[in-house]
Every structure is written in structure tokens, then in C-alpha cells.
């Protein structure tokens, strides 16, 4: 198959590259998670399940739980913020659509460290909001706007929103408008038409967007690191810490493997739920 046309061999360097620098390292951390940590932070090549047993410690359970809650909330809020925006863009004229899409896309390319930092300027105790409120005499003491779970959530939605808007826009664009017209023709109110026609037909966009947002937020450590307090550490921060400060690489690997499996499992469940919903609708 591959030797018939020489042009087909052009993919070999890229595939080798990804094999060596992506697949191999992924397998390595999977392997590493079954080894022990030495006294000086080195890896001791002895098989153990201890790293996985340690994850059952309620401390980590709590952090995993927090991470999931933040990721799910981020996803839901992104849908709420992103869907109407995507809907609005898809109803514009072609030329304005291109401009709006570019405007939504640009922040996505800006470094998220910088974007989280921008919120620090606004929300910190001597920040823009507190300074304005104080000069207006509305408050005397600065409000604690930063370094809590709320600010982490805000930062997450802010950085990941474009991931939600673009796929929803694409599915709205691909939607067959005639079905919507048919619904109006049959006397559906705009809300009913939206609920029974538009929303089901753009489900793929919502699913794609949700997966992108969810996957990105579940491993996020920059936003909590910059905008969160000591109590709002997420699993990403714990993993980062295991690798760079605690130097317990086997445990860090185990944590990240669990994180990956967990996110895959949740994505799978989400797909199932959407599919089941479709089947139910089809039967009705």
C-alpha cells in the first residue's frame, strides 16, 4: 500500500518525529508511574503500585473533585457565554462574520499567562476595580476579588471561551436553514423553533466545543497558579509540583495518567449521554 507511490513516503519523517517525541514519551510516563521514587528524587526502577494507591488519599480525591467541578462549571459557563455569541455571528452578513470570527479568534492565540495576568491587574486589591470603587466611596476596604475559586473560574472561562464559540459557529453555519423555515412555516414560535430545531442540529458543535474546553481546563495550571489562592490548587498544579518541586516523578506520572483516563472516561460518558438523548428524541 505505502510503497506504490513515492509521495506517500513523505509522511515518514513527521510520523517518526511524533512517534519519538509524542507517543514514546506518553508510554514512558505510563511506565514511570509503576516505579519508585528514590531518596534524592531520582527514579528507582522497581515495580510498585504504591503511586496509584496513594491517589486514593482523600487529599487528592478532594483535589480531583475540585478539578472536575471547576472543569464542568467552566464548560457549562462557556456554553452559556459562547452559544448566543456564535448564534449572533452566524446570523450576520458574510463580511461581518469574517471580522467577528477573527475578533473571537485573536484572544485564543494570545498567551494565557498574559491573559490571566491581565485579570490580576483588574481584580487585585490595588487593582482597577477596587480603586474605582474606593474613589467612588462605595467601599472603604478593598474587596477580595482575586485568589479564590470564583476568580479561577472567571479566568478559565475567559481563556477558553473561543474554544467553544468556533465549533458552535461552524455547526450553525452548516445547518440546513430550510428546516428552520419549515418549523416557522408550521407555526413554531422563535423559542420553540430554536429549542426543537436549531439546538438539536447544532449539538455536534456544542459537543466538540465542550470537549475542547473540558480537556483544556482539566489540565490547566496557569490560571489557578496566577489567579487562584493556596486553597484553589487544581490537579494540574499538583502534577506540576510533583515534577518540579517535590521531584516525585513516578507519583506525578501516576496522577497525570489518572487525569487523562478520567477525562477520556468523562468525554465518553458525555458522548453516550448525547447519543442517548438523540435516540430518545428519535423515538418520540
Amino acid at each position: 500500500m505505502l510503497n506504490k507511490k513515492p509521495v506517500k513516503l513523505l509522511a515518514v519523517p513527521a510520523l517518526l518525529w511524533l512517534g519519538l517525541l509524542f507517543v514514546l514519551p506518553m508510554l514512558l510516563i505510563a511506565l514511570l508511574s509503576f516505579f519508585k521514587r528514590g531518596t534524592y528524587g531520582q527514579v528507582v526502577y522497581e515495580f510498585t503500585l504504591n503511586n496509584y494507591i496513594r491517589i486514593w488519599d482523600p487529599l487528592y480525591g478532594q483535589i480531583f473533585g475540585d478539578t472536575l467541578v471547576v472543569a464542568i462549571l467552566t464548560t457549562l459557563l462557556s456554553i452559556v457565554c459562547g452559544y448566543p455569541l456564535a448564534y449572533y455571528i452566524s446570523r450576520l452578513e458574510k463580511s461581518s462574520q469574517q471580522i467577528w470570527l477573527l475578533l473571537v479568534m485573536i484572544p485564543f492565540w494570545i498567551n494565557f499567562l498574559v491573559r490571566s495576568y491581565a485579570w490580576v491587574i483588574i481584580l487585585r486589591s490595588q487593582g482597577v476595580v477596587n480603586t474605582i470603587l474606593q474613589s467612588l466611596g462605595l467601599i472603604t476596604e478593598p474587596l477580595p476579588l482575586l485568589y479564590n475559586s470564583g476568580s479561577v473560574l472567571l479566568g478559565m472561562v475567559y481563556t477558553l471561551l473561543p474554544f467553544m464559540v468556533l465549533p458552535i459557529y461552524v455547526s450553525l453555519e452548516q445547518m440546513d436553514r430550510r428546516k428552520l423555515e419549515a418549523a416557522y412555516d408550521l407555526g413554531a414560535t422563535p423559542w420553540k423553533a430554536f429549542w426543537h430545531v436549531t439546538l438539536p442540529m447544532t449539538k455536534t458543535g456544542v459537543v466538540t466545543g465542550s470537549i475542547l474546553v473540558f480537556v483544556s481546563s482539566i489540565g490547566m495550571f496557569v490560571v489557578p497558579d496566577v489567579m487562584g489562592g493556596a486553597k484553589s490548587a487544581l490537579i494540574g498544579n499538583v502534577i506540576q509540583n510533583q515534577f518540579l518541586s517535590a521531584r516525585d516523578w513516578p507519583f506525578g506520572s501516576a496522577l497525570s495518567i489518572v487525569l487523562m483516563l478520567l477525562s477520556m472516561l468523562l468525554i465518553l460518558l458525555y458522548f453516550r449521554a448525547v447519543k442517548a438523548g438523540e435516540a430518545k428524541e428519535g423515538a418520540a
Partner: peptide, 10 residues
């Protein structure tokens, strides 16, 4: 689609 942190540590 893999979380960036995983690629970094891997």
C-alpha cells in the same frame, strides 16, 4: 487534544 501539561511532562 491531549492536555498540554501532559505533553510537557512527558
Amino acid at each position: 487534544v491531549i492536555p498540554e501539561i501532559m505533553m510537557g511532562l512527558a
